[in-house]
């Protein structure tokens, strides 16, 4: 999870590295720690470190971690020959390692040799059939081939065994949302909310799905989850503020019954939005107020 302070630290380091101010290794470590996908930058700066034997050996045992990180980033940037070189180095160091075997199979995947990659993964699974990452790679492979139904099938099978894996639940939810299967996506987000109730982004995603589903009951629930997001973020999540306002606008549309709580909540969220916009982007305040007016007109 990326907290606000970590996010600020990352932006600062990124600027520093881009302007040649050093701190490359700290940046790469932070990207690894926060599990971010900054493949272009990791590849650019990581390969520069790896190309310099002095810098490389200064890292000590961390050198091999960097090799793995940069190899994956290189595959993501389609520099397959370089990725192959890095994997060869790792293979020379760690013979018979499953982790390097996985990297090789990923290289096959990046080349688009699906059946070879599948074979490599199944032979790795024979040695250890509880390797979660390899099961997940198979899902990703089905997804990369555009076979979303297959990906869902693999994921469901995987989740039967590893029910506590919230990353997999999130992936399943996102696939369902992309297929517009909102009921199933809502179920996945419910699982996520049960396992990690303190993360506001899951509340927000669940509220979005409910709002998309529509219907009186779902809109009521969506309003409550948007409110929960506002509560957990201290009103600093713009999407939740907008969502809360528009859910209430949908709820009260075409009805003259004036609900006091709802209208109060709507005006409060509008006030919070106006304040945030005035602070952060004063040029967009007029656009915001016209959008808010259209929300209120429709009520």
């Amino acid at each position: 999870m990326v907290s606000k302070t970590e996010d600020e630290q990352l932006i600062r380091l990124e600027n520093q590295v881009e302007n040649g101010g050093g701190g490359t290794w700290e940046y790469l470590s932070l990207v690894r720690k926060l599990k971010l996908r900054r493949s272009d930058k990791v590849f650019k700066y990581g390969s520069a470190i790896l190309a310099d034997p002095k810098k490389r050996s200064a890292l000590g045992p961390e050198e091999w971690t960097l090799y793995e990180q940069v190899a994956i980033a290189a595959m993501d940037c389609q520099h397959l020959d370089l990725a192959k070189g890095y994997i060869k180095v790792l293979q020379g160091k760690f013979r018979e390692s499953k982790r390097v075997g996985r990297l090789e199979a990923m290289l096959l995947e990046a080349k688009g040799l699906w059946s070879e990659a599948e074979k490599a993964y199944s032979s790795l699974l024979e040695d250890n059939q509880f390797d979660q990452v390899i099961h997940k790679r198979r899902v990703a492979m089905a997804k990369a081939q555009g076979n979303l139904a297959g990906a869902i099938e693999w994921l469901n099978k995987y989740l039967e065994t590893f029910m506590a894996d919230h990353d997999a639940w999130r992936e399943l939810a996102e696939i369902y949302v992309s297929l517009q299967m909102y009921k199933q996506a809502a179920f996945c987000y419910e699982e996520l909310l049960l396992t990690q109730p303190t993360i506001p982004l899951y509340h927000l995603a669940y509220a979005d799905v409910l709002y998309t589903l529509g219907g009186l009951e779902n809109l009521h629930a969506a309003k409550k989850y948007y409110a929960a997001t506002i509560d957990l973020t201290g009103g600093k999540n713009t999407r939740a503020l907008f969502g809360c306002g528009s859910a209430i606008a949908q709820l009260t549309r075409g009805r003259n019954r004036d609900d006091k709580d709802n209208s109060e909540l709507q005006s409060l969220s509008a006030a919070a939005l106006e304040k945030a916009y005035k602070q952060q982007s004063p040029t967009k305040v007029s656009a915001l107020s016209s959008a808010l007016r259209s929300l209120k007109v429709s009520s």
């Binding site: 999870m1 990326v2 606000k4 996010d7 599990k35 993360i199 506001p200 973020t233």
Partner: peptide, 12 residues
Amino acid sequence: RVVALPANLDFM
């Protein structure tokens, strides 16, 4: 305050 979820790298 969580502002971003990690990219799901296992499913990259």
